[in-house]
Computed example of a mutant assay.
Amino acid sequence: MCWSATADLVAGTGIAAIGVVCVARVRRARDLPLAALPLLLGAHQIIESGIWRSGGGTGPATLAWAVIALPLLPLWVPLGVLCAAPPHARRRLLLPVAAGIATAVPLAYCLATRPVNAEVRGHTLGYAIDLPHSAPLIAGYLLATVGALLLSQDRVLGRLGVLAAVGAAVCAALWRLEFVSTWCAFAAVCSVVLLARRPEPAPDRGFRNS
């Protein structure tokens, strides 16, 4: 996971490969964003391996990592779940989607106006950015990501939500200053459970006899 450049590179490559398999199995376009989640998170870990090798700092890799971790994921996850969800489950998912939008907008603004710095802290990486009102942003972030998975009414997605919630609690307790890095790594590894999600058949677009 986030313990070294090599660990990030190996884990990221393996998770991204699983993401490619998930994407290749998709039969409905609306399942694509969710199926691509391991691919995105795997690429995220590969980017972090480059941050390790550069010794941290404020370079392009750090910014790219922060863009994925902060504004992109709280939008990607609830919208991906909403797209893939059955009609009867979509109304309850509007709350995580709204939380994702409300969280992503100020996070994107902060990244656009303030520097983000990565710092090597032993066997973890810490990311520092001046975030106003960090507590409600964290709450909104977790509601958007973990909440969407738990409210999906999908067995595999629910399992991923439970794992992500447990991982958030563990990472917050053990690595408070490195929470974002460690939790993103944990979530990336957990995302491989999406391989167990059976793809829905493509819609029938055959011609009818007149």
Rank of each mutant, 00 (worst) to 15 (best):
M1Y: 05
C2K: 00
W3Y: 07
S4G: 07
L9C: 08
A11H: 00
A11I: 12
G12N: 02
G14K: 06
I15F: 09
G19H: 10
G19C: 04
C22K: 03
V23D: 03
V23I: 15
R25L: 09
V26A: 15
R27P: 00
R27K: 14
A29P: 01
L32N: 07
L32R: 14
P33M: 04
L34N: 05
L34D: 04
A35K: 04
L37T: 12
L37M: 12
P38Y: 06
P38K: 08
P38H: 06
L39Q: 08
L40K: 03
L41D: 06
L41M: 14
H44V: 03
I46G: 01
I47V: 14
G50R: 15
G50E: 14
I51D: 01
I51T: 09
I51R: 06
W52A: 00
R53D: 07
S54V: 06
G57A: 07
P60I: 09
T62D: 06
A66E: 08
A66H: 02
I68M: 13
L70C: 04
P71K: 09
L72V: 13
L72Q: 03
L73E: 09
W76E: 05
W76T: 04
V77H: 01
V77F: 05
V77T: 04
P78V: 09
G80V: 08
V81M: 08
P86S: 11
P86G: 13
H88K: 13
H88D: 14
A89Y: 02
R90A: 10
L93V: 05
L94G: 03
V97N: 01
A98T: 11
A98M: 08
A99E: 05
I101G: 06
A102C: 13
A104C: 04
A104V: 02
V105T: 10
Y109Q: 12
C110H: 10
L111P: 00
T113P: 02
R114V: 00
N117H: 13
V120E: 02
R121F: 00
G122H: 10
H123I: 09
T124C: 06
A128R: 15
I129H: 04
D130V: 03
D130L: 11
S134V: 15
S134N: 10
S134I: 15
I138S: 08
G140L: 05
G140C: 02
Y141P: 00
Y141A: 06
Y141D: 03
L142M: 10
L143W: 03
L143Q: 01
T145K: 01
V146W: 06
G147P: 05
A148Y: 00
L149A: 07
L151Q: 07
S152N: 08
S152M: 03
D154P: 04
R155T: 15
R155L: 14
R155M: 11
L157Q: 14
G158Q: 09
G158N: 05
R159Q: 12
R159K: 09
L160Y: 13
G161E: 09
L163C: 12
L163P: 05
A164P: 03
A165W: 02
G167E: 11
C171P: 03
C171Y: 02
L177I: 05
E178G: 01
F179W: 14
T182L: 09
A185I: 01
F186A: 15
F186T: 13
F186H: 13
L194E: 03
L194Y: 07
A196H: 11
R197S: 11
R197A: 11
P199A: 06
P199S: 10
P199N: 12
R205Y: 13
F207L: 15
R208N: 10
N209G: 11
N209V: 14
S210R: 15
